[in-house]
């Protein structure tokens, strides 16, 4: 197996996902076959190849150059807080995190 049950649980913890026992079993099998498949990238010799992070080659294509970073007014806090499951302006409310 490419991935153990413990690793599945560890990844779920990193991703803040609660999974049922049956989901853990199912994902272990499915992730195993997907990870085995993507191992095919190991066939390639990648020495000297630069990683590609951006489709537009921002450095070489002038039409893809980034805009200037300019401060502007944004007045949406009210509308944003209206969408929150729990809020008390100007804050979002969450369960207590810090014990005194």
């Amino acid at each position: 197996m490419k991935i153990t049950r413990e690793e599945v649980l560890r990844v779920a913890e990193l991703a803040h996902l609660s999974l049922s026992d049956s989901e853990v079993t199912k994902f272990q099998g499915q992730l195993d076959s997907i990870l085995s498949y993507i191992d095919k990238l190991k066939e390639l010799d990648l020495s000297g190849v630069q990683p590609m992070a951006q489709a537009l080659e921002a450095n070489t294509r002038p039409e893809a150059a980034l805009r200037d970073d300019v401060v502007c007014v944004s007045d949406v806090s009210r509308a944003v807080l209206d969408q929150a499951p729990e809020a008390k302006a100007p804050y979002f409310r969450v369960p207590k995190v810090i014990e005194r």
Binding site: L41, L44, Q50, P51
Partner: peptide
Amino acid sequence: AYYLRAQKVRSLIR
């Protein structure tokens, strides 16, 4: 092993 390698293969595909 995965992410960086895939970014390099992405260069080759382009």
